[in-house]
Write a protein that binds this DNA or RNA. Structure first.
Lengths: 342, 342
DNA sequence: CTTGACATCCGAAACGTTTCGGGTTAGATT
DNA sequence: AATCTAACCCGAAACGTTTCGGATGTCAAG
């Protein structure tokens, strides 16, 4: 089907070597010859066979990324969509493609990493949503394969790799103190699953916020949820069933905050008046939500782009000025947190 | 770095051939031998070199997709996020990976297609957002490479390929008639750019709807916008500047509808009371918008999944029962279209 | 004892590219 | 006339895998 160097060589009367060198711009081939070869190549619709190149160990011009598929069918976390877009756009500008595998965390997921790394399909990997004792990081480390991470290790674990993360401990502290300042005293918290690396940071931030303002930490104001709307819905139901006097709920991502709002509204209560709600991420839907969602902003798209630049620097052997970046979170106040109460 | 068949062969005392055959499950190798070889392979952390396999012409277990990057930096169309998720989830279940390249339509984009197809990197392609006289379809046709399409050709062009599309002509007719039934007589329309294949279908549907109800088509009630929020915003401004008496605006996708709502609200008018708004797609944000958006639902995620199943059937040489699927659109009425007016 | 069948194994070629280490020629220099 | 240089070209090996077409040895049947 596709024309090869050999075809061009035969048609043009030169050797495969010369054809190869002509097409890749070496200067030891006559300019006329080169033109002729290029002409023949175009006529035949030649396109280099990439696997053959990669077999020779040349760059694949490809970045790999494994994204977690969720429970059932749906993996459209807004977070990953945005990250992926940032990564994709930046990669495209550097003439890199993306190899994507969506996998449920577990053995299959590790296999996907192995296929990409040891299978020689990518120059580097972008890793997201770190977990406690993350086996993916251990693997990439051991392989010595270039990689960058969105998010850092859980508190207490080593951070011996390049990453970009938002200081979500500070984020939750700010959010908690903000709600306390509005007059709230009983604030529920819906955390991510325990194995997510940032869960403890956010938990700590919440505790810090309470402590700063002299409030007692109540363990039963805190529940865990998957990171989806449904998890937020169920978490809020659980909190409000057991503690109807809560006046505010913080969900650790916007999707769960949206679920929380549904649960509150489903009970005939009004978000922002009866119960204040806040989220984390500032995904596009946060702005359009009704009422609009008070949240902590993470520049996800930009993080995606910067991760690519870091990764390419590593691949190219340049040394990067900053390899561990901790961004400061930004509070975005909208209607869902309601007015000051008394 | 990575162990090869040769390494395993040396370590185990068998030939490369036998190692290869043992690992790929041929039955002409002694079971004990196989166990031994598998053991050695695991000990060395063997992972097959994919490029070498692909060079031999074996399946790449990869589906390619080129997604359009928009104007400046941002390509996070909700539409593509959802489609990508559907494609990714279905592919994952069939043990396929995705090769993604984001490209601005044009020469670079075609080059990306060539790299994937002729460069032998994918078994098949998923193509989305068809354009008039789409060169990508022509190319894939000519190459005889398996592909499926989300969307069909513009009216009058041949549809000689497998696709899934929503009957958006019917969709716009339904939407238009619905607004007329609510009492609207002056309805603006914000179309996609002219070169998008479905633009004419939607334009025709709008005209049909008017005609059915005995209303005159007014060419200056119709403008074009890019498919982003900003385009909807600008389009609505233009319409309302020139025709302040419009009582309804249909935007041809939800993103533009959201922009339209901003424009209306920015003029101190109320969406659903002063001006009715409707969109197309039913992306998640439509439900959360304020007011919630009346729109035509497209099952984008499911389309993504079904496209993968069609594509894999083609790749495997099975014949598919249906290769050209036209889905019926569904009207979703929410607050943005307002009540009946008199 | 010969033959055939079976189980097990392997050598070598092939996929398409890049690159090392040359070779050939023509013209310039001695 | 011999030597050198520069310009241009090419053969062959290598990357890691799969697979075709045997090779070898063992054992049962004739």
């Amino acid at each position: 089907m596709g024309a090869t160097l050999k075809d061009i060589a035969e048609k043009s009367g030169y050797s495969i070597t010369t054809v190869s060198r002509a097409l890749s711009g070496y200067d030891d081939v006559n300019e006329q010859t080169r033109q002729h070869i290029i002409h023949v190549a175009n006529a035949l619709g030649y396109e280099p066979n990439l696997p053959a190149r990669h077999l020779r160990g040349l760059s694949t011009q490809t970045i790999g990324m494994v994204i977690p598929a969720n429970d059932q069918t749906f993996s459209a976390h807004d977070f990953f969509s945005q990250l992926l877009t940032g990564v994709g756009d930046a990669a495209s500008r550097e003439r890199y493609d993306l190899l994507i595998s969506t996998q449920v965390p577990g053995e299959e997921e590790m296999a996907a990493y192995r296929r990409m790394v040891r299978g020689n399909r990518v120059d580097g990997m972008v890793l997201a949503r770190t977990r406690q004792h993350d086996p993916r990081i251990a693997y990439l480390h051991e392989q010595g394969h270039p990689f960058v991470v969105s998010g850092r290790s859980a508190p207490g674990e080593p951070n011996d790799y390049p990453f970009i993360d938002v200081d979500s401990q500070a984020g939750l502290r700010i959010l908690t103190e903000f709600l306390i300042e509005l007059g709230h005293r009983r604030i529920g918290l819906i955390l991510p699953p325990e194995d997510i690396a940032y869960t403890d940071y956010r938990h700590n931030g919440y505790r810090e916020g309470l402590a700063h303002r002299g409030l007692e930490y109540q363990a039963d104001y805190v529940v865990h949820g998957d990171l989806l709307r449904s998890g937020g819905y169920r978490g809020a139901q659980r909190l409000l069933d057991t503690h109807p006097l809560l006046t505010a709920i913080i969900a650790c991502n916007d999707l769960m905050a949206l679920g929380t709002m549904s649960a509150i509204q489903g009970r005939g209560l009004q978000v922002g008046r009866d119960v204040a709600v806040a989220g984390f991420d500032d995904i596009p839907a946060a702005e359009y939500a009704h009422p609009a969602l008070t949240t902590i902003q993470q520049p996800i798209y930009e993080i995606g782009q910067r991760l690519v630049h870091m990764l390419l620097a590593i691949i190219r052997g340049e040394d990067l000025p900053e390899s561990q970046i901790l961004l400061q979170p930004k509070l975005v106040v909208r209607a869902s947190s309601g007015p000051k109460i008394t």
